[in-house]
Design a binder for these strands. Sequence first.
DNA 1: GTTTAAACGAGACGGTACGTCGAGTCTTCTC
DNA 2: GAGAAGACTCGACGTACCGTCTCGTTTAAAC
Lengths: 184, 184, 184, 184
Amino acid sequence: MTRGRPRSEESRRAVLSAALGLCERDGYQAVTLKDIAAAAGVGRQTLYRWWGEKAEILLEALGELAAEGLAAPEPSGDPAADLEEFLVRTFGSAGTYVGAVVVGVMVDGQGRPELGERVRRELIQPRRGELRPLLDRVLPPEVDRELAVDLVFGAMWYRLLNRHAPVDGAFAREVAAAVLRMAG
Amino acid sequence: MTRGRPRSEESRRAVLSAALGLCERDGYQAVTLKDIAAAAGVGRQTLYRWWGEKAEILLEALGELAAEGLAAPEPSGDPAADLEEFLVRTFGSAGTYVGAVVVGVMVDGQGRPELGERVRRELIQPRRGELRPLLDRVLPPEVDRELAVDLVFGAMWYRLLNRHAPVDGAFAREVAAAVLRMAG
Amino acid sequence: MTRGRPRSEESRRAVLSAALGLCERDGYQAVTLKDIAAAAGVGRQTLYRWWGEKAEILLEALGELAAEGLAAPEPSGDPAADLEEFLVRTFGSAGTYVGAVVVGVMVDGQGRPELGERVRRELIQPRRGELRPLLDRVLPPEVDRELAVDLVFGAMWYRLLNRHAPVDGAFAREVAAAVLRMAG
Amino acid sequence: MTRGRPRSEESRRAVLSAALGLCERDGYQAVTLKDIAAAAGVGRQTLYRWWGEKAEILLEALGELAAEGLAAPEPSGDPAADLEEFLVRTFGSAGTYVGAVVVGVMVDGQGRPELGERVRRELIQPRRGELRPLLDRVLPPEVDRELAVDLVFGAMWYRLLNRHAPVDGAFAREVAAAVLRMAG
DNA sequence: GTTTAAACGAGACGGTACGTCGAGTCTTCTC
DNA sequence: GAGAAGACTCGACGTACCGTCTCGTTTAAAC
């Protein structure tokens, strides 16, 4: 039996939406909990009650984004094409402000092991889990799957952080080709 | 003709050394300009005069570290062994607290384009420049060098950030083997 | 309609009290906003939110002091005695550390016209207003009231600043006698 | 036996002149030792070597000003006119920025007994000494001289500090008239 | 002339107070 | 009892001035 005023779903959505919007406009680092509360028309205490810090809010927002755009990865007959398509979609999304938010969340997790663990579990591992079966279908058994995942997503993260070159579909196709070449 | 009291080399070294020491003990994010000034026995204004922010201090400190441990990459007769040795050394160093400092500096550069550019120029590009000729000697001409560099260092950065697995000599050898496999 | 947490009257009183106490112990010039915050057990930001500078805090504190010790100036039958009593009370108070605080506040107002205006309005003019009717009852109409006020309070201020002689009841009686002599 | 380079009279004059100029332009409180050194084209150490603080510099500068405009107080046959003329000259000078500087110096002396003593000795007492004989010639013996001096200069200082009315020739004449009225 | 030593301009140094900002908590009123 | 508003404590930030110090240069008297 629960009592009292229930959590406001409206506030929750307003916070997530405001947080994403502010990140898109000002960049993750520049956004403040105060800003988010103001933009969402929400009390500051509400943020602390339900999330506690900026990274957790964005982590949840990113989760919703992923859930919306999940789109079942219908396995076509061509494993190589399936891999390429997955990477094109993933890298394409990472190339927008969403990638910057992901980087920001990861960055905040650097100094806080607990948050880092959540990032790993909710943001990183799911993607690894999606990539792994696609690689299974193109790689011979003697190639280590985890290493291959590190190489693929590593290249993406490296460019996201370092920005020496864009993260886009073209890059995704290059990386896919390199994997296939490794497959022999 | 310059006049006035010359900059104190002693203070400079004390600052760089204190900064590294505090990062090793407390982690990059936890270290404060105040802490560094206190640990170095130096006025806070001196830090702002010559560096201006934590990342710049550590950037310079990392530069000195790199200069000390440069060790000419004597090209032996075996290109594959040379590549592996370079990666073992590089990953080995990144596996210590130094890697955490590098991540911290990079992370701070995310929200500040100017600092990001310095990080890229002084920290990232030099390493890419060292790796490239080693790859030249093992990769066939049709494999894109920049892509290969992205894959190699990407894997390293991905693990540094994400910490799902160690960055060490074993990992360096796996990556080297994957590159050679890509070479066909 | 106002909402949110109301201003803490407790903090306000703690600040005013701490400020006066520190001034009494260390002298106005030596007291720091930091000191006041610490002594009052209050955040530094609170001082900046409500007052903004040392002089404003003491101005308010002096206002409260004046309000406490106002004591209606019951007009007796003897105008000369009333004048003398007023001056004895006023000079007596100015002779304590309170006079030093008043000087300090005035001094701070020298370089800031806005603050100077407040000091004039809240600290100086009220006292002139109290003195004027007392002078009216002892001075003939041809003597300029404002000049007389300047002479009386001027003598007090001159000694407060210059400290070549005490500001006390004896001095108050001398000044009162001089005024009566001017009255003819 | 003195040796070494002698003190530079040129620097000394440049400092005094720069100090007065800056006070006229920016007001005493706003002027900094750093500013004076820069404006005088002089090293900061030179200021500390010969003066030690702002007030001492201005004290010396005011002394030079007074020495320049001393003008012998030729006693005419009319004591009342002599008094009035003295006050008109004195108040006239105090009405310019010079008065503001005098106030500034006095104010700085509030928190430092040693400096206060110098101000009293070099700035205040000489003027009292000039006024006293002029009062002697107009006041009957039963009127206390020191009290009369306090009233006259007190009125001037009170207006200098408080600025509720100008310090000028007209005010000087009013004060002179009040003194004569006190004389009976 | 050469030496000697103090004063000089310049400017970096270690400190300290300032005023601002974001984080996280607390208090009051409203829904 | 959840939520909006906003005041609260705390502590890092970056700036400014202070008073000291360390340079290399200049100046004039002593030798």
